[in-house]
């Protein structure tokens, strides 16, 4: 908010601001100040993009400024042979409703979001409730690159080289009690820096959840980077959940709170559309979404003239996670 002193016009009798009148929140952070033109441009572009591909003149001009490199992560064999989706596509085609509902909005509207300093509050059924700073979190396990397929419930997919650590490392740190059967993941919801949160479109803050065994699965990671660089705000900086065998919306972004609970959480999308989004949301070509067939998917970056790919059960991770659901009716537990 502009401070009242800032509103005094030149020529009005005098400037009566004492330094103490200027609240710290009135001072624009230096990095934002230096990027002010860029931000204004981005905001304007965001407004134009509202027109959803119908009216925008030169649609996708936003240039993404790269993030600092993450030192010393280890490569893994995950995702060998998959062609990576380009950095540009991964960082400009996002579903992150806290920054707006069209795919281009998050890249255009997230410049004011501040991913540092950051900490995650761990609470609920744990022996060690409290906050963990991002720096501490990163020391819990060595950082690894995991190349995962990401399948969106809307029928498109990407291949993303995440950098992160197994979620299990944080769970072990938190020492869950015997009552902890599920985990809730709660995302940031700051109306000052996340314009989408100002509209009551979804029940903010965004809440996602996993069953304990899903959360402990070695495939489940907390990602802090992609392409060897820190996450962009639009990708869920500074830390987000990645669960590669589930539809993308299960991966809560910009996590601020992790709560261990006994009962199955009612996630944001379950509340928004109970017939469309279930708790499990496992990628499953045989279980149709009311709006989209889930049998095939469009691989982002494959170009204008390319066919859809067949969607794989559990997004191709059956071997690693199939056993988690043995005996369950996946049509009922969609």
């Amino acid at each position: 908010m502009p401070h009242v002193c800032g509103l005094l016009k030149k020529g009005t009798d005098m400037l009566i601001c004492k330094p103490s009148d200027i609240k710290p929140s009135d001072i624009t952070p230096q990095n934002i100040f230096h990027r002010r033109r860029e931000i204004i441009k981005a905001a304007g572009l965001g407004a134009i993009m509202l027109a959803n591909g119908g009216f925008s003149p030169a649609a996708f001009a936003a240039e993404i400024v790269h993030k600092p490199k993450i030192p010393g992560f280890r490569k893994t064999s995950h995702g060998g042979g998959e062609k990576l989706t380009s950095y540009e596509d991964i960082t400009t085609y996002n579903n992150f409703y806290e920054f707006g509902t069209s795919k281009e909005n998050p890249a255009a509207n997230s410049a004011l979001f501040k991913p540092s300093p950051w900490s995650i509050t761990v609470e609920g059924e744990v022996g060690k409730p409290g906050k963990i700073a991002l720096e501490e979190l990163l020391k819990l396990a060595p950082l690894e690159e995991r190349i995962y397929r990401m399948r969106c419930v809307e029928g498109w997919s990407m291949v993303i080289p995440w950098v992160g650590l197994p979620l299990s490392a944080l769970i072990k740190w938190a020492k869950p009690t015997g009552n902890a059967k599920f985990i809730e993941f709660i995302s940031a919801a700051d109306p000052n820096t996340m314009p989408g949160v100002r509209a009551p479109l979804l029940d903010w803050p965004y809440l996602e959840g996993l069953r304990m065994d899903e959360a402990m699965n070695p495939l489940t990671i907390l990602a802090v980077g992609l392409y060897g660089e820190q996450l962009q705000n639009q990708n869920g900086a500074p830390v987000r959940l990645v669960v590669p065998w589930k539809y993308g919306f299960k991966g809560g972004k910009s996590l601020v709170r992790i709560r261990f609970v006994e009962k199955m959480p009612q996630t944001t999308w379950m509340r928004a559309g109970p017939t469309e989004y279930g708790f499990y949301a496992n990628v499953n070509p045989e279980v149709e979404h009311p709006r989209w067939s889930q049998a095939t998917e469009r691989r982002i970056g494959s170009g204008l003239f390319s066919r859809r790919l067949p969607t794989q059960m559990f997004n191709g991770y059956s071997e690693q996670v199939g056993q988690l659901y043995s005996g369950m009716d996946l049509r009922k537990h969609f």
């Binding site: 959803n52 591909g53 030169a58 996708f60 540009e88 400009t92 085609y93 795919k103 498109w156 170009g303």
Partner: peptide, 14 residues
Amino acid sequence: ENMGANPVEFIEHS
């Protein structure tokens, strides 16, 4: 090549 990450969807929407 300026139709964004999902050109097919872009053409359909437009």
